[in-house]
Design a protein around this nucleic acid. Structure first.
Lengths: 113, 113
DNA sequence: AAAGGATATCGGTAATTTGCGATATCTCTA
DNA sequence: TAGAGATATCGCAAATTACCGATATCCTTT
C-alpha cells in the first residue's frame, strides 16, 4: 500500500537518504539521467525489449570506477531504496532510474523536511 | 562563494544526505518545524533576542530521547551540514532550522537528483 | 572565587558501511 | 554439455558511525 501510494513514510525516506549518503552512488544515479550521453550505445539496443534507458552493470561499473562486486552491491542498495529499477535480459541486468520513487522523494522533501 | 550561492555542490549535498541518513536526526529537524507545538514555551522567551524559533539543546534532548552528549553531537552534524543554525545566548545554545540551506537542498534534489 | 547548570568534547565499544577478491549462479553459444 | 561472459553473493579487513558516560568548558549567580 505504500510503495504505490503518494507520499513516502519516514522509514523509506531514511533508506533513500542512506542510499544517497555516498558520493559514488549519487554519481551513478546522476549518470542514469542521461544514458545516451554517458554510456556506449550498445547497451540501448534493448529499446524494443521494453526497458528503455536501462544500462547494464558492466557499463556502469566502468563509469563509476568500482570493482564488479561493489558496483553490483551499490546498485542493489539503490534498488532497495526504490531509486532505480532493474530488469534482467539475457545475461545482462539493466538498471534505470525509477522516476516514480524519485518524484515521491521530492514530494517528501518538500512536505516533511 | 558557495554556502552563499544558489545551488549546492555535490559534496555539500552528500553531507546533507549523511546528516539525514539517521532517523533520529530527521526527527529533530522535523520537530524544529514547529517549535511552539513541540517544545515548552520557556525556550522561546528569546524572541526579543533575535533568534525566533530557536530551541535549547536540553529541550531537544528530551524529545529526541538521547543522551546529552549524543544530542550535542547530532546537532553539530546537522549544523555542519547547514540544515540548522545556532546561537549561544547566555548558557544556552539555541538551534533552529536554516531555511536557506533547506531551500537550496530542495532545489538540488529537483535539479540534480 | 565557588558552585551549579547547560553544553561541548573526549575516549571508548558495538554496530554498520566501504570496497575488495574469490567464488557461485545464470545464460548464451560452440 | 563445456566453456565463457555477466552479474550476484560471500567473506573479509579497514574505516566510519552510533551512542554512551566521564570530563571539560562556559555562563551565571552567590
Amino acid at each position: 500500500m505504500n510503495r504505490e501510494s503518494n507520499i513516502l513514510n519516514d522509514e523509506q525516506a531514511v533508506e533513500i537518504f542512506k542510499a544517497l549518503s555516498n558520493q559514488i552512488r549519487v554519481n551513478i544515479l546522476q549518470m542514469l539521467k542521461e544514458p545516451d550521453n554517458n554510456f556506449s550505445p550498445q547497451a540501448h539496443v534493448i529499446k524494443e525489449k521494453g526497458f528503455d534507458g536501462g544500462v547494464c552493470v558492466s557499463d556502469i561499473r566502468i563509469k563509476a570506477g568500482l570493482s564488479q562486486s561493489t558496483t553490483s552491491q551499490y546498485l542493489s542498495i539503490l534498488l532497495q531504496s526504490g531509486l532505480v529499477e532493474m530488469k534482467r535480459i539475457g545475461q545482462w541486468t539493466y538498471y534505470r532510474r525509477n522516476q516514480k520513487t524519485i518524484e515521491q522523494f521530492e514530494k517528501y522533501i518538500g512536505l516533511k523536511i
